[in-house]
């Protein structure tokens, strides 16, 4: 039995949605446990008094990356069957700026706003209404944005391939950078005036 289990046909494709629900619960639980249901947490990254967001997401990324590479090495996972989301350069940059402004204005990202709603936060509910309005505007303006939306498709591109290095070397460098960042962030947190919330 080799992963990924669904493309390999070990688990039927119709189970995709069931896993999505289970993983969704897990993701929500992890976000809430990390304290992301508070808008002050995400804003903390912007003002420099709390870098938990950076630490949690980078830890998730490097753990998954190292895990995938080891699983691939011992033959439990066929790396070539993994779906790699295509890179759309122009739309990713513009979308990133829009999302970044939204995050720092509202103090939530789409996932954490739902966590906030689940525990009854009013600001999270308002954030979600804003998000729905944004979705509506985007959908209505889609014919105008379509060209930009689909521009600069680079396909399923990996950073390691673009830099011409092996996946392992890239994984190692990224881990070192991430760990360095964790300690750097902790140092900044100590320097910045503590915010109680």
């Amino acid at each position: 039995m080799v992963a990924p289990l669904i493309p390999m046909g070990v688990i039927p494709e119709s189970w995709n949605n069931v896993f999505a629900v289970i993983l969704g619960f897990g993701f929500g639980f992890a976000l809430e446990s990390a304290g992301f249901s508070s808008s002050r947490k995400i804003i903390g990254t912007f003002f420099g008094y709390d870098f938990v967001v950076l630490k949690v997401f980078f830890t998730a990324a490097i753990t998954a990356m190292i895990g995938l590479l080891y699983l691939s090495y011992i033959g439990w996972l066929d790396f070539s069957l993994l779906y790699i989301h295509p890179t759309f350069l122009a739309s990713a940059i513009i979308g990133g700026i829009v999302m970044g402004i939204g995050f720092s204005m509202g103090g939530y990202c789409p996932g954490t706003s739902f966590c906030g709603i689940a525990i009854g936060k009013i600001d999270a509910m308002i954030f979600m209404v804003g998000m729905a309005i944004g979705v509506l505007i985007f959908s209505e303006a889609f014919p105008l944005l379509e060209k930009l939306y689909n521009s600069g498709n680079l396909g399923g591109k990996l950073v390691s391939d673009s830099l011409g290095m092996s996946k392992s070397l890239f994984a190692f460098l990224l881990t070192v950078v991430a760990v360095g960042m964790f300690f750097g962030a902790t140092w900044v947190e100590k320097k910045v005036r503590k915010v109680e919330y």
Binding site: T59, L69, F79, S166, S168, A171, F172, L174, T175, V179
Partner: peptide
């Protein structure tokens, strides 16, 4: 934990690179 994760990542450099051709 930080040291452990760096060691695990360093371990990736030691294991032989299996052909990544699709």
């Amino acid at each position: 934990l930080a040291i452990l994760v760096v060691l695990l990542a360093a371990g990736l450099l030691i294991i032989p690179n299996k052909g990544e051709k699709k």
